[in-house]
Design a protein around this nucleic acid. Structure first.
Lengths: 153, 153
DNA sequence: TCTTCCATGTCAGCATTTTGACATAGTCCG
DNA sequence: CGGACTATGTCAAAATGCTGACATGGAAGA
């Protein structure tokens, strides 16, 4: 019994502009929730998983670059890194390789944990992707990208 | 795809940034940031604006319904409502009209503030919408919706 | 009717994230 | 060379959001 169904707005023909943000937020919230549930079994949070995934692909990233890649502040990324470091999933170089940036890289344990969790996350993404017609997927990705770019500057 | 890990990716992607989840998060983060900047001049935060907008469209909503509509917990919504109430932008009925739910409605000041801020928010959404081909907009909205629905249950 | 169940409002504690600030290291010109 | 500028790491504090818990009011079903 779910009566929380989206109540039809009084003005159906209302500007779609009003709803784009809502739909986007809704989709993002649903994804966040689903990922959270999927990752719980692996002892990871979404920000933690994001960091691991990014580091697996681009080893040696700095804390600040990681922050930008996960759309949070440097300070937030720092907290996440600290947690992952304490868990032995990644290591930070003691000395800066360039500038003040301290390169970060996964440990074997970190890679193992990431690979284990990846399946759960990919399952979530699959559910999401299969909900949209395959031929529209590329366009969807492109549109999300251009929208973000349009707002970024 | 050279990825022969324990779990195959849901779709070909050499790059994490190619994933739907990443793009979605990126777009949502960009929107959130742009709305935040736009609303700052009006003395409102994004959650506050969301509440006002929702209440303007559906007066008498309860705190819990408001929470679901803005994708946060009841507790978080409660804090937001308290702030808006202290600012005189909305009022909560003293007695429950039905069950324990306390109907909430905007005050004239709340409506005025909302109308003032709406322009700034619409400008942001316009920028976002104009970045994607008009003929794909409807499909984009529908796809965001179905994706959210696919993850919700 | 009564009993069980669900939704709501609310309190408390904790986790997460952001804002603000500062020192440091490198870069870009003058 | 030297100063302005930028980027990074980090600390402190506040804001924000969530989990857990509890009591209450209605509704559904035995």
């Amino acid at each position: 019994m779910e009566e929380h169904g989206p109540v039809p707005p009084p003005h159906p023909a209302e500007d779609v502009t009003e709803h784009v943000g809502y739909r986007l937020k809704r989709a993002a919230a649903a994804l966040r929730g689903a990922m959270d549930r999927a990752l719980r079994d692996h002892g990871l949070t979404v920000p933690q998983y994001s960091c691991l995934e990014l580091l697996d692909e681009r080893p040696g990233l700095s804390s600040a670059e990681l922050a930008r890649g996960t759309f949070v502040t440097r300070q937030s990324a720092h907290v996440v890194l600290r947690g992952l470091e304490d868990a032995g999933l990644l290591a930070r170089a003691a000395h800066a390789g360039h500038g003040r940036a301290l390169p970060v890289h996964l440990t074997p344990a970190g890679r193992e944990r990431l690979h284990a969790a990846r399946g759960a996350v990919y399952a979530v993404e699959s559910r999401m992707i299969e909900a949209v017609p395959a031929r529209r997927l590329a366009a969807l990705l492109a549109d999300l990208d251009t929208m973000a770019a349009a707002l970024g500057e």
